[in-house]
Amino acid sequence: MRAMVADFRLLHLVPEGKVSIERRIAGTFGYLAPEYAVTGRVTTKVDVFSFGVILMELIIGRKALDETQPKDSTHLVTWFRIMSINKDSFRKAIDSAIDLNEETLASIHTLVELAGHYCVRESYQRPDMGHIVNVFSSLVEF
């Protein structure tokens, strides 16, 4: 029961009107947004990146950082970007525990697009968490 994400909830420490703080890096490698891992700079987009990585893990059934994988597949985000280009290869990579049917596959393709969007390298290209909540709210059937 160990959290495997970036430093969620750091932003409550950001003073009103500021968009980031600089501090010691805390979190698990593989989940850290590039700008946070390199500079220690926290923005509202570091959580978005981590959430995208978690989505990737759920879809593929692999850890964010897996040293048992071949060198070019160790980091899930990098591997995911390459694999998601080829739909046929990607279908084979989906976690075998997921029962694939047409409806499930369509949902997974939506999640693949979202996860890729949440894990773009440049933070300004990522949506904020409010947008994610709105997107997922529209996907959920009540």
Rank of each mutant, 00 (worst) to 15 (best):
residue 1 M to G: 15
residue 1 M to T: 15
residue 1 M to E: 15
residue 3 A to M: 15
residue 4 M to Q: 15
residue 6 A to Q: 15
residue 7 D to N: 13
residue 8 F to C: 14
residue 8 F to W: 13
residue 8 F to P: 03
residue 8 F to M: 15
residue 9 R to P: 02
residue 10 L to E: 10
residue 10 L to W: 11
residue 13 L to K: 04
residue 17 G to I: 00
residue 18 K to S: 02
residue 18 K to V: 00
residue 18 K to A: 00
residue 18 K to E: 06
residue 19 V to W: 10
residue 20 S to L: 05
residue 20 S to C: 07
residue 21 I to C: 00
residue 22 E to A: 14
residue 23 R to A: 08
residue 23 R to D: 05
residue 25 I to F: 07
residue 25 I to Y: 09
residue 27 G to L: 01
residue 29 F to S: 07
residue 30 G to K: 03
residue 30 G to H: 04
residue 31 Y to I: 05
residue 33 A to F: 08
residue 33 A to S: 11
residue 34 P to C: 07
residue 34 P to V: 05
residue 35 E to H: 06
residue 35 E to M: 04
residue 36 Y to N: 03
residue 37 A to V: 09
residue 42 V to R: 04
residue 44 T to L: 07
residue 44 T to H: 08
residue 46 V to L: 11
residue 46 V to N: 08
residue 48 V to A: 05
residue 48 V to N: 03
residue 50 S to I: 06
residue 50 S to R: 01
residue 51 F to P: 00
residue 52 G to T: 12
residue 52 G to S: 08
residue 53 V to Q: 06
residue 55 L to E: 05
residue 56 M to E: 09
residue 57 E to Q: 09
residue 57 E to N: 07
residue 63 K to D: 14
residue 64 A to I: 09
residue 65 L to F: 14
residue 65 L to Y: 14
residue 66 D to R: 08
residue 66 D to V: 07
residue 67 E to S: 12
residue 69 Q to S: 07
residue 70 P to W: 00
residue 71 K to R: 11
residue 74 T to R: 12
residue 75 H to V: 05
residue 77 V to I: 15
residue 77 V to H: 06
residue 78 T to K: 11
residue 78 T to M: 10
residue 80 F to W: 01
residue 80 F to T: 00
residue 81 R to S: 11
residue 81 R to D: 09
residue 85 I to E: 03
residue 86 N to I: 04
residue 87 K to M: 05
residue 87 K to A: 09
residue 87 K to H: 04
residue 88 D to R: 02
residue 90 F to M: 06
residue 92 K to N: 03
residue 93 A to M: 12
residue 94 I to W: 04
residue 94 I to K: 02
residue 95 D to F: 07
residue 96 S to M: 12
residue 97 A to L: 14
residue 98 I to V: 09
residue 98 I to C: 03
residue 100 L to C: 05
residue 100 L to G: 04
residue 100 L to Q: 03
residue 101 N to C: 08
residue 102 E to Y: 02
residue 102 E to H: 05
residue 103 E to D: 09
residue 104 T to Y: 03
residue 106 A to V: 05
residue 107 S to T: 07
residue 107 S to W: 06
residue 109 H to I: 10
residue 110 T to P: 06
residue 111 L to Q: 05
residue 112 V to L: 00
residue 113 E to W: 12
residue 113 E to K: 14
residue 114 L to K: 06
residue 115 A to F: 07
residue 116 G to P: 00
residue 117 H to Q: 15
residue 117 H to C: 13
residue 117 H to M: 15
residue 118 Y to N: 04
residue 118 Y to L: 14
residue 119 C to Q: 10
residue 119 C to T: 15
residue 120 V to G: 02
residue 120 V to F: 01
residue 121 R to S: 10
residue 121 R to V: 09
residue 122 E to P: 01
residue 123 S to C: 09
residue 124 Y to H: 10
residue 125 Q to E: 04
residue 125 Q to M: 04
residue 126 R to P: 00
residue 126 R to S: 01
residue 130 G to D: 04
residue 133 V to I: 07
residue 134 N to W: 01
residue 135 V to Y: 06
residue 137 S to I: 02
residue 137 S to W: 05
residue 138 S to V: 10
residue 138 S to H: 12
residue 138 S to L: 13
residue 139 L to Q: 03
residue 139 L to E: 01
residue 139 L to F: 04
residue 139 L to V: 02
residue 140 V to Y: 11
residue 141 E to H: 11
